[in-house]
C-alpha cells in the first residue's frame, strides 16, 4: 500500500528555497508542486472548507514569494511554510468571526457535494479527520502526514510541549485507524 509514500521525498530542501529566493520560476513551481498539498491539507484541517482552503493556499504562496528573503536556511522549510499557512488560516477565521459568530467545530462544510451517500462518507478521510478529531489533533496529524516535518518542529509551530504533541498524534492516528478498519470490515 505505501510503496510510493516516502517521507524522504517530501523534503523541501534549502537549495530549492534558495532558488526560489533568486526568483527562479521553475523552482517556485517545483515548490508549489511539492508543498501545495501540505498547505492545502493544513488549511482544510483549520478552516474545514475547500473554497477557504484554496484561498489560503493562494495567499500562502504569495507570502512565500514576498517573504522568501527572510527565510533562514536551517533545513526547516516546511515548518516555515506551515507557520505562514496557519497565520493565513487564522486571519481568515478572524475576519469571518468579525462578521458572524461561528463555532469553529460547527463550521466545517464537509465537501462541496451535499448529496454525499454514507459509503462515500466512510471512504473520505478528510471528512473523517474533521468529524473524529479536534482542531489541534487535525493539525498535528495533517502536518506530519503531509511532510517530513518532525514532531519537535510541530511542537514549536503549535507552541505545545513535545509530549503533548506526541500523545495527541498517537491518539488521533489510533482513532482514525479504528474507524478506517471498521469501515473496511463493513465494506
Amino acid at each position: 500500500m505505501h510503496s510510493n509514500y516516502n517521507k524522504e521525498t517530501l523534503n523541501i530542501s534549502d537549495k530549492l528555497m534558495k532558488r526560489v529566493s533568486n526568483y527562479d520560476a521553475r523552482a517556485f513551481e517545483q515548490l508549489y508542486n511539492q508543498a501545495s498539498g501540505a498547505v492545502f491539507g493544513l488549511a482544510m484541517s483549520i478552516v474545514g472548507n475547500q473554497a477557504d482552503a484554496e484561498d489560503i493556499v493562494q495567499n500562502t504562496f504569495i507570502s512565500i514569494y514576498e517573504k522568501i528573503s527572510s527565510y533562514k536556511p536551517q533545513g526547516k522549510a516546511m515548518a516555515w511554510i506551515f507557520t505562514i499557512t496557519r497565520n493565513h488560516a487564522y486571519m481568515l477565521l478572524r475576519n469571518k468571526e468579525k462578521h458572524t459568530h461561528i463555532d469553529l467545530d460547527d463550521l466545517y462544510d464537509i465537501g462541496t457535494d451535499n448529496t454525499v451517500v454514507e459509503d462515500t462518507y466512510k471512504e473520505n478521510i478528510t471528512k473523517l479527520l474533521l468529524s473524529e478529531l479536534k482542531d489541534d489533533e487535525r493539525q498535528i496529524v495533517t502536518m506530519h502526514a503531509m511532510s517530513n516535518i518532525k514532531h519537535k518542529d510541530i511542537a514549536k509551530i503549535m507552541d505545545m510541549p513535545l509530549s503533548t504533541v506526541l500523545s495527541k498524534y498517537r491518539r488521533s492516528l489510533e482513532k482514525l485507524r479504528n474507524v478506517l478498519e471498521v469501515n473496511e470490515y463493513e465494506t
Binding site: Y5, F40, T126
Partner: peptide, 12 residues
C-alpha cells in the same frame, strides 16, 4: 499508522 498517513497524503 503510516497507512493512515498515506491516505491523508493522497487525498489532500
Amino acid at each position: 499508522h503510516k497507512d493512515v498517513e498515506q491516505k491523508i497524503y493522497e487525498e489532500f
